[in-house]
Every structure is written in C-alpha cells, then in structure tokens.
Simulated scan of single mutants.
Amino acid sequence: MGNQKWKKYWQVLTSNNIGLFGLILLMIFLLIAILAPFLAPFDPTDRVGAPFTKPNSQFLLGTNDVGQDILSELLYGTRISLLIGVIAAFISILLGCLVGIVSGYYGGKVDALLMRLVDLVLVIPFLPLMILLAAFIGPSFWNIVLVISLISWASPARVIRSQVLTLKTKGYVEAAKSIGTNISVVLSRHILPGVIPIALSQFVLAASHSILIEASLSFLGLGDPFTKSWGTILYYAQARGAFLTDAWIWWVLPPGLLITTLVIGFAFTGYSLEEILNPRLRKER
C-alpha cells in the first residue's frame, strides 16, 4: 500500500509541468556534480592562463585574477554548493522532525517549552544571527553546514508539529494508545508515515535556502576559502576587482545564474510536492 502511495505521488509530480521542470534541473546539476572531473577542462586550482583572460576557444568562460579557468571552478563548485545545501537541509529537517514530533505528540509543558524555543529562533533577525554564528564558529565546510542547520530547523519544526497534532487525533492512533501500545511503536507505525511526506517537501525547500545561505556567507568572506563553491567564486571576484573591469561578465554572472537556477529547481520541486501532499493546494483538473 505504501509503495502504491509513493508511486502515485511520483506520477502526480512528474505530470505537473512545474514539478517536472524542477526535477529536470536538479538531475542536470546532480550529473554535473558527479561528472565534474570529466567535464572540467582543467584542474580548478591550477594556473593555466594569463590573469583576466577573456572567454575564448581555450577558456570558454575566461580566467580569474590568477589565471585559473573559471569554467572548471564552476563545475567543481557545483559539488560543494550542492553538497552543503543537501547536508545542511538534511540536518535541519532531522532536528525539525525531532522537535516537532516530540512537541506535537507529548503536548503540555514540553510543547510549550519547545515552541517558545522555536519562536525565539524565528524572531531573531536572520541576517545578523547568521553572520554572528559564522564569524564565531569560523570558516570551514562543516562549520558552514552547522551554521545553516542551526538557523534553519525552526520553521520545519513548526510544520511537523502541526502535522503531528493532526495525526495523533486520528482514530487508529487513539486506539493504539488506548490498548497500551508502546510509544515507539505508535510513533514508527502511525506518526512517522504521515510525517515523512511533509518532511520531504520541507527538505527540498530547505536545500534551496541552504544553498542561498552558503552563497551569502561565502560572498561576505565567512565561507571556507579553501573550497571552490559558487559563493567563494563570487567572494574572490568582488574582492579582486572583477566589478571594476569587464571581468564581472564572465566571473560574476555565471555563478550568480547557476545559484539562481539551482534554487529555482529546488523551489519548483518543493512547491509541487507541497501541492501534492496538501489537497487544499491542488487545483481542480
């Protein structure tokens, strides 16, 4: 029965033009990330040309200020940006599910305490909190993932809690609880199956937000300077005079367009999943 439900979700998602377009974009970026070593014409850390070389037949997107091939940087940067977005989204959704399930299922003082914590995280201005945490923890791959996770779990937690509050009033859940079924069994058999689809749609949206946050932090100089993400490419471009020359056309514009396109792919897929999982959002066909 569960397989039939997921098969139906997949059929509805792929029949939705927006969702299908989002999935295609995500698959393209995933292939680029996997095949980056084969697609990149040069090692992104090697100096292969003169600084600020304009795009030509050898360097399709030109070179940066030290002569590194920008196309190769972008292809390898797909791996880092996509990896940070997915890992950070997974951790934030995991934390959100834990808080949301515990809060919604137990209620009472536990619910009040956890929801006040969620409110506190949500009410703090996002940008100052993000910059403060990143500056305090320090720049590295895993520190950036930690910062993004710490500021992104609260919103999914609220959504998951709402779903749990709805599920625990269902007759089959009440019946299981009334006969003394172990809490772990109730959660695993009756609550989690109803939470996972919502968590999946939240994960897709969280991944798009995580990619934007990583790019923002890296652009501000708070990312890992030793990794080739799209955000660090933008940081070095603005720090080394790309905006003062014509180099911004091939050094700044491509990573900006890639970030936008990948976020659109995640956003379209996430919104389509929400429409599938929430009948009130579906349009009559």
Rank of each mutant, 00 (worst) to 15 (best):
G2Q: 15
Q4S: 15
W6H: 09
W10N: 14
N16Y: 05
G19M: 02
L20W: 12
G22P: 02
L23K: 09
L23I: 10
L26K: 00
M27A: 14
L31S: 13
A36M: 00
A40E: 06
F42P: 02
F52D: 11
K54L: 13
Q58R: 13
N64T: 06
D65T: 10
V66C: 10
V66N: 12
Q68T: 08
Q68C: 11
D69L: 00
E73C: 11
L75K: 01
L75S: 00
Y76L: 05
G77S: 05
I80H: 06
I80N: 06
L82T: 04
L83H: 04
I87G: 02
I87C: 03
S92R: 06
I93D: 08
C97D: 06
L98T: 15
V99A: 05
V102C: 09
S103M: 12
K109H: 11
V110F: 13
V110A: 14
A112E: 15
M115G: 06
R116W: 13
R116H: 13
L120F: 15
V123P: 07
I124M: 15
L127I: 15
M130Y: 04
L132D: 06
L133R: 08
L133W: 03
F141T: 11
F141K: 05
I144D: 02
I144R: 01
S152C: 00
W153K: 11
S155T: 13
S155H: 09
V159K: 08
S162G: 14
S162M: 08
Q163N: 13
V164N: 01
L165N: 06
K168G: 01
K170L: 13
K170M: 14
A176N: 10
A176Q: 11
K177Y: 11
T181R: 12
N182H: 13
I183L: 15
I183W: 15
S184R: 15
S184D: 12
V186A: 07
V186T: 06
H190M: 09
P193T: 08
P193L: 07
I196C: 07
I198V: 12
A199V: 04
F203R: 02
V204F: 07
L205Y: 01
A206Y: 10
H209F: 13
H209C: 09
I211W: 09
I211D: 03
I213D: 08
A215F: 05
L217Y: 05
S218Y: 02
S218M: 00
L222F: 04
G223P: 03
G223C: 11
G223W: 08
I233G: 03
I233E: 08
Y235G: 07
Y235Q: 13
Y236W: 14
A237E: 13
A237K: 09
Q238H: 14
G241M: 11
G241A: 09
A242E: 02
F243Y: 15
T245I: 08
D246H: 14
I249H: 01
W250K: 09
W251Q: 09
I259D: 00
L262F: 05
L262I: 08
V263A: 02
V263T: 04
I276E: 02
I276T: 01
N278Y: 10
P279C: 07
R280G: 07
R280P: 05
R282C: 05
